[in-house]
Structure formats: structure tokens, C-alpha cells
Write a protein that binds this DNA or RNA. Structure first.
Lengths: 278, 278
DNA sequence: TTCACCTCTTGATCTGGATCAAGTCTGGGC
DNA sequence: GCCCAGACTTGATCCAGATCAAGAGGTGAA
């Protein structure tokens, strides 16, 4: 649906691509280090949680090796989703949750008047589809922002297994609750904060989420286009662009295309009106 | 904490109070009919889900009589919370969920900079505290907007019971998912909609939620003060007040203090940019 | 009853971010 | 290589809603 040109991410190995001009300014080693994506977009069909990089955040968290084994048995496949492709569409019947192994997604709700609203950016280790349980249909669609891979968890089986494995039930409650808490943060953000505070908060938020996943806290890719960031934050692309320029002038961040370096995270946190781990 | 004066709700039987002027304009029968609160604020300690008016929406939904009985056994008490009192404070250790039997609450998060944000209005049959599970501490405080009663559900026991009763696990997932979906609706609302659309959407939303609880779809109390509505919608009290006046002039609603009559629900739905059940 | 203190309403002015309008940059196709 | 489409940037103008300000209506306490 969304055709991506220009600043788009490459299909292959590295999630970051620079213009020749930019490359001259960034050391090659750091460019590689910036990648949010694992080395290659594997398309292995055997699911193995135990060597998955996000197991500490995903459903296996807190489970015994034996229980993880049972979880692996119901996990149907690990698919590669290309940038721009949809994992599921709005209105699709709810049958499975999807755990993100690598890459990133946006969740988009289409309002009654046809307008789209980005409601969530999802990173590795997070589950997509939790909000579909109560109505048994996905209220939003999920689109890959870069080449991504996911594990599909048929919910009926997951539910049955959770009945037998207390740790799994706990972890599902945990992921539900965590997502609920995050949504409240978004509501807070959109509620009363200035455009400046919103963008600063998003940068801090994404930084912290990447940190928990073992990536650099200060250097990462904003895999989403400006227009999606704007939509998510309740702003326009122009305002986001202006703010990014201003933040650069204020030496809070450094930007090359979609690669971001946070130069002054405490400063951003102050703007955002949140405390930060720095 | 929040001292309430002026337009405050009475302590006693009826949630609605009118000025003498207003009373002359509203038939007594309809005033009674407007009440969002059940007849009296009972303080019975024996929990009985089977004769609770919100059982169809609350945890017992879909359970057998036998399972409801087990649920009742772990439900610790039914307390009356006075208007303005807090059910739990932000930062309190998470031990229980609270099911609202009658009345209404607001959830408020205090940001790092000290500013408060109303993140949710909770009505009978809804659970408070779901967002505290992942961190084991309440991120927000819950304050009664009118005299209310709740059932306390110690979560450790609820979790154990859910392990044994599949329908209960399902229903907990369901309430989590439903709240998540609702939060997404709020994000959509705050994202890009005009002040007018936000207020219209809130009125529609509250109307539909009361309808599901068996109250009138067109006549109900906005139990929350304007300032809370404004905070929740990311607006100022002045803007909310102006909009309410304008909606009255446009004959979309009729307002007496906090009592609201929706005169043109489809019209409001159009403004809100949502479809409605009317 | 009077007074203090709320919440709510209404008016006047100001401003942050939207909108409109050109551009520039980048990568892909030919 | 050149061209084109889409992502992004930057500038000028406009307006919805904030802010500031004043007053009205209602309640509880003395």
C-alpha cells in the first residue's frame, strides 16, 4: 500500500543507508553499529526462543527451558515481512498474536471518516495484536517499517498453554499491562504537551526501548518516516521537520537521514518533561 | 486532596442535584431517572456478583454459577468511596484490582514536572489497576468522582483462580484487551481532532458506555467537573465551557449543571467523526 | 443572612502549530 | 548518465484554541 521512495531503507543487511555526503562524515564502524536490524533477515522456519535476542522481553521471559520448549511447539512460523508490507489488516479476524523478532512496525487505525492515525510503534520483543482480543478483530493494521521478522502465536493454543503454565499466564498479563501503561504515556504526551516536548519524549522513549533491547542508547535509526512520526504525535510533518532542525541547532541531536544520535539526552528529557535514566 | 465546592455532587442518595431554578424546569421523575448511581450507597460486606447490576460487563461475565461462587470467595470487600477520595495513590504497591460496582472514577497520572493528566474515566463494571501489573506499582491514582462502591480483588489469588478457571482467564484477557482498545480510541481522539470533535466524541463515548450498563443513552450525568474533562481532552476548561454552550445553541445537547441530555446523537457523532449506534 | 470560595461562563487578545507554497535531497528506473 | 517520485526542509501566512481577565451562579459555614 504505502510505496516508499527516497529516504527508504534498503532491503538487505543494514538498516541504515547514507548519502555519499553523509558517509564521508560518519566513520564506517559507527554506521554498522547503528543498525537496528539483526545481521540478516533470516527466513528459518524452526522457532527457537532460546537463542532469540529478545527472549528476555518477549513471552519466554521467566519461563523454564521446558516451558519454553512447549511455547516453541505452538509457535507456528517465523516470517519475514518486507518494509511496507502489512502483517495484518484492520478488520482481520483475530487468530494470532505476533511477537516481533527483529525490525519495527507501526499500528494504524482508520477512523470512521477515513483518516488514518498511527497509534503505536512496535519494536523487537513486543507483541502485536493484543488489542484485538476483546472484539476478535484487529482494530488497526500493522505495517513493517523495515524488513522485519515475527513469530506467530495462535492465540487459542497460547491461551490453553497459559492455563497450564502459570509463568506464561503471568507474562501475558505482564505484556498486556505494559502496553496499557505505555498507551497511558502516549495519552499524557498528546494531552497537554507542546510539539517540542512531544518529539523530545518520543526520542527519549525510543532510545530507552532500544537500550532495553541491547542497542545503543544514543545512536539509533528512526525507522519511521517523518510523516508517521508527525501523525503519531498529533503534529504535521513540517513541524516535526522544523523541530528536528532546531534540536540539531541546539546540539541536542545529530541527524543524518533517519540515523539519529542523541547528543544531550538529559537536555531532551528536560524538554520532554520526563525523567530519564541518564 | 481535591476539595470540591460549588457544583459538587451530594453525599447521599441521588447523584444529581439541581438549582431551585433548574428543578422547576425538570420533571421530578426524570431527575430521578437521570441518576447514574444505584439507589443507595450500600455498605454490605458480603459480595454477591449474581445480583450485581454490572455482572455482565465485569469479571463474572461468561462464568458458570459455580465459578462465580469461587470468584466471590476471593473478593475481599465492597467498600464505599466518597466523592473526592482516592481508591489508591500513584506509586502504591500493586496488590489488587478494583471492580467498580457503582459510581465513577478518574485516573490521574502525575508527570515528572508535577503536572497532572487525567488518563481515564472509569464507569461501573470496569476494572481499575490493570496498568499496574507490569511494574507492580500504580502509575496513576484513582479518585472517586461521586460516592462509589468497588469490589477488591487480590490479584495473586485472582491469578491462581484464573489458572483453574479458563473462563476467568479469558475474561481477564478480555478486559485488558478492551481497555487497550479504548486507550487507542483516546490516542486517536487526542491525535488530530479538533476541540469540537473531542468533546462530541467524549459525549458519545460516555453515552454508549452508560447504555451498555442499562442506563439511558441520552440522559446522564457528566459526573466529572469541566476542568477534568478539559484535562482529559487536552483542552482548557474555558474551551470546554464554550463548546458546551455552542452545542446547546446548536440544539445538540441540553445541559443543567452536570446533567446532560443528548438531543441529537447522530449530529454529535458526525461532529466527532465516529459512527454511532443510533 | 452574609460571606468566602468554589465551578462555570463569557469576552478580548495572543500564539503555537497548521496550512499553503516553494524548494532540495535521495534512490530507483531507464 | 539523466529523470522522476516521494521524503524532507524551509519560509510566509493564518487560525483554533490558549491565556488573561472579569463576572455570574451555587454551596457551605458562620
Amino acid at each position: 500500500m504505502t510505496r516508499q521512495g527516497g529516504y527508504n531503507l534498503p532491503e538487505g543487511v543494514n538498516a541504515v543507508r547514507f548519502s555519499s555526503k553523509a558517509v564521508t562524515r560518519v566513520a564506517a564502524g559507527r554506521v554498522i553499529g547503528l543498525s537496528n536490524e539483526k545481521k540478516s533477515a533470516e527466513q528459518i522456519s524452526k522457532v527457537s526462543c532460546s537463542n532469540c535476542s529478545v527472549r528476555a522481553l518477549c513471552l519466554p521471559a521467566g519461563l523454564t527451558a521446558q516451558d519454553i520448549d512447549r511455547l516453541e511447539q505452538i509457535t507456528r512460523k517465523k516470517t519475514v515481512i518486507k518494509a511496507g508490507d502489512q502483517l495484518f489488516r484492520a478488520g482481520d479476524k483475530f487468530t494470532s498474536l505476533y511477537a516481533i523478532r527483529s525490525g519495527s512496525f507501526k499500528s494504524v487505525v482508520i477512523a470512521a471518516d477515513g483518516s488514518a492515525q498511527v497509534t503505536h510503534f512496535a519494536l523487537p520483543g513486543e507483541l502485536l495484536g493484543l488489542d484485538a482480543y476483546s472484539t476478535q478483530a484487529h482494530p488497526s493494521y500493522a505495517e513493517a517499517l523495515e524488513n522485519s521478522s515475527v513469530c506467530e502465536l495462535p492465540f487459542a493454543q497460547l491461551e490453553t498453554l497459559a492455563q497450564q503454565v502459570p509463568g506464561l499466564q503471568k507474562q501475558i498479563f505482564n505484556l498486556f499491562s505494559e502496553e496499557l501503561r505505555q498507551e497511558k504515556d502516549v495519552v499524557m504526551l498528546l494531552g497537554k504537551r507542546s510539539a517540542e516536548a512531544r518529539l523530545a519524549a518520543l526520542l527519549i522513549n525510543i532510545s530507552e526501548r532500544y537500550t532495553r533491547r541491547g542497542y545503543s542508547a544514543t545512536e539509533f535509526n528512526l525507522t519511521m518516516p517523518r510523516i508517521d512520526i508527525a501523525n503519531y504525535l498529533g503534529l504535521t510533518a513540517e513541524t516535526v521537520s522544523r523541530l528536528i532542525s532546531r534540536f540539531q541547532k541546539q546540539e541536542l541531536i545529530k541527524v543524518q537521514g533517519r540515523a539519529i544520535t542523541l547528543l544531550d539526552k538529559p537536555g531532551l528529557a528536560t524538554l520532554a518533561g520526563v525523567s530519564c535514566s541518564d
